[in-house]
């Protein structure tokens, strides 16, 4: 178990270090999310009261789009020099490799979200600071779901032609329930309603989704990685 943890963290640290060094995915992802936030301002009246009702939806669509950029890189990074082969032939079990990569993706996507959140608040005049701790919980749960599905599918599509095109097409329909849950919880929080009451079943949905797909991904990681 100690070794499993060490391998998981080694993989996560490796991915984070290379990404922080090059900032390829991070830069693209942050600028992309700001561009989308800007584009939304043309789709509806940004200063209207209506903004509060769709705030959650807006945010999570931005996060899901930004996530695709990060997730695409996750396994593509291993293709250069056939690094993935070296990882798989090492004693690192599939679940450790998968979890390590998922953790790195989670951190990266959370960074993007934490940058775009204040921008969103300023652009759309949404007050969020007082709700931040709970919002962060929702962000964490939602992002973990995006990352679990995304990392798995990144591994599945890594050797394919059209990898970049394939990933979003496969991943977004799969994430719809998760995004719905995250959107409902976020909207409830931004409207000052808390996570009890109407948002409660959605919070449970988020947790359930995360659990089911984490188990599934870990169980199938060796199947995907070893031919």
């Amino acid at each position: 178990m100690g070794l499993f943890l060490r391998q998981t963290l080694t993989i996560a640290a490796k991915d984070l270090r290379s990404e922080i060094r090059t900032k390829e995915a991070l830069n693209a992802s942050v600028s992309f999310s700001i561009v989308i936030l800007l584009l939304f301002s043309f789709a509806f009246e940004p200063s209207s009261e209506q903004t509060h009702e769709i705030a959650g939806g807006l945010l999570w669509i931005v996060f899901a789009f930004a996530g695709a950029l990060i997730l695409n890189r996750s396994f593509a990074r291993e293709l250069v020099n056939d690094c993935l082969d070296a990882l798989v032939s090492s004693p690192t079990p599939g679940p450790a490799l998968f979890t390590g990569k998922a953790i790195a993706n989670l951190v990266l996507l959370l960074i993007v979200e934490l940058i775009s959140f204040p921008v969103f608040g300023i652009f759309y005049n949404v007050r969020w600071l007082s709700q931040f701790p709970l919002l962060f919980v929702v962000m964490f749960l939602g992002t973990w779901g995006i990352v679990v599905i995304g990392t798995m599918f990144s591994a599945m599509t890594v050797n394919l032609r059209l990898r970049e095109l394939m990933l979003p097409v496969l991943v977004y329909p799969m994430m719809i329930p998760l995004l719905m849950g995250a959107i409902q919880c976020t909207t409830a929080l931004l409207n000052g309603q808390g996570l009890g009451g109407e948002a409660a079943p959605w919070l449970r949905l988020l947790i359930g989704f995360d659990l089911i797909f984490s188990i599934l991904a870990v169980a199938l990681s060796d199947t995907v990685l070893v031919g």
């Binding site: 290379s18 020099n81 056939d82 690094c83 082969d85 070296a86 090492s90 004693p91």
Partner: peptide, 20 residues
Amino acid sequence: PETRRKIGVLGHGIAVYEEL
């Protein structure tokens, strides 16, 4: 896993990370 610890592999690719 025990077996894989005993194997050293040198494949077609050099399998080292460019950014590290």
